Simulated assay, not measured.
Amino acid sequence: MCGNNMSAPLPAIVPAARKATAAVIFLHGLGDTGHGWAEAFAGIRLPHVKYICPHAPTMPVSLNMRMSMPSWFDIYGLSPDANEDEAGIKRASENIKALIDQEVKNGIPSHRIILGGFSQGGALSLYTALTTQQKLAGVVALSCWLPLRNSFPQVEQSRHTPVCTCTSVLQCHGDSDPLVPFIFGSQTAAKMKDLINPDNMVFKSYRGLPHSACPEEMVDVKRFIEKQLPPISDE
């Protein structure tokens, strides 16, 4: 269990079957841990890829009557105009950037790292990808939204200078999501196409899928990882 001291246990890790030459860092959703996602990635693992699923610290969450639970940052509401925990989002993003930096120190270059997440974790992965100086291999954003979206440049400013230095983004969303409505996902995809090269942005929808993942989606995630993190010649 996470403690109330804002610390979190070590990430759940699916090690590479051979020398790790690439990594996926994947962030779970509100109230969850990294263990379930580590199991999911173990089922679609690639032998040269290391999968890192960190656990969020436990904190009181305003959305859930200030109950303490694993959360990357506070959430005040789910409506598009709800106030956002700007300080908490930025603090969490810096922690994820530090995790990326640690993998770089461990010998995996940033362009061989995919960042991703589900729901709140997906939101944090998008924000982090748009604000990091590291060039990532890509982002996998599932059932999520872009936090602090108004802090990014408008279309006219960003069209010729993409904000995000990652090469590709795969965004997925169920069309029957009752928690993070599908319209949030489609609006986020439209915003992302303004901030990155739109040719590098893929938005996939899944009929009847609620706020969860499905086998079809995980196959799409695996294919994206295979494309962005191919084996290198000396493996």
Rank of each mutant, 00 (worst) to 15 (best):
V140N: 04
L27G: 00
K204F: 12
P231F: 05
R45Y: 01
T21D: 09
C144D: 02
Q228K: 11
C2S: 12
R223I: 11
D32H: 12
F41N: 04
P147N: 07
A8D: 05
G174T: 14
S176W: 13
F26W: 07
L209E: 02
E217D: 06
K19V: 12
R223G: 15
Y206F: 15
P231I: 05
P80M: 03
H28G: 08
T128R: 01
S233F: 06
P153Q: 05
Q120T: 06
Q154V: 15
D234P: 06
G3V: 00
M218T: 14
T188P: 06
V219P: 13
L78Q: 08
S93A: 14
H28W: 01
S186F: 10
I196C: 14
M1W: 11
N5R: 13
A56L: 08
M65E: 14
D220Y: 14
P181R: 11
D101G: 13
G29Q: 00
K222Y: 04
P198F: 01
Y51P: 05
L30F: 09
R207Q: 15
L10M: 01
E235C: 08
M67K: 12
H173K: 12
N197G: 10
T128Q: 01
N5L: 10
G36L: 03
F41M: 06
D234W: 06
I44H: 14
N83R: 13
K222I: 02
I89Q: 04
I44E: 11
A137V: 06
L115Y: 02
P60R: 14
Q157Y: 12
E86Y: 06
R207D: 14
Y76H: 13
D101M: 05
K19A: 13
N95I: 00
G31K: 05
N64A: 12
V14C: 04
L115D: 05
L126H: 05
R91Q: 15
T167L: 06
H111T: 07
N150P: 00
G138T: 05
A16I: 00
E86D: 11
G122T: 02
G36H: 08
K90W: 02
Y51Q: 02
A129D: 04
D175A: 11
V180A: 09
A38I: 07
D194L: 11
Q171N: 12
A12K: 06
Q133H: 13
V169D: 03
F224K: 07
A141D: 02
H160I: 10
T128C: 02
M67G: 11
P54T: 06
G107R: 09
L148W: 09
P9K: 03
L63W: 05
H48V: 01
L46H: 07
P9E: 03
K19E: 14
P70W: 04
A82Y: 10
C2T: 15
L146I: 08
A87N: 12
L46I: 04
Y76P: 07
P9D: 08
S143D: 03
E226C: 04
A40D: 04
P230F: 05
S119M: 08
D234T: 15
M6Q: 15
T188Q: 01
D177R: 09
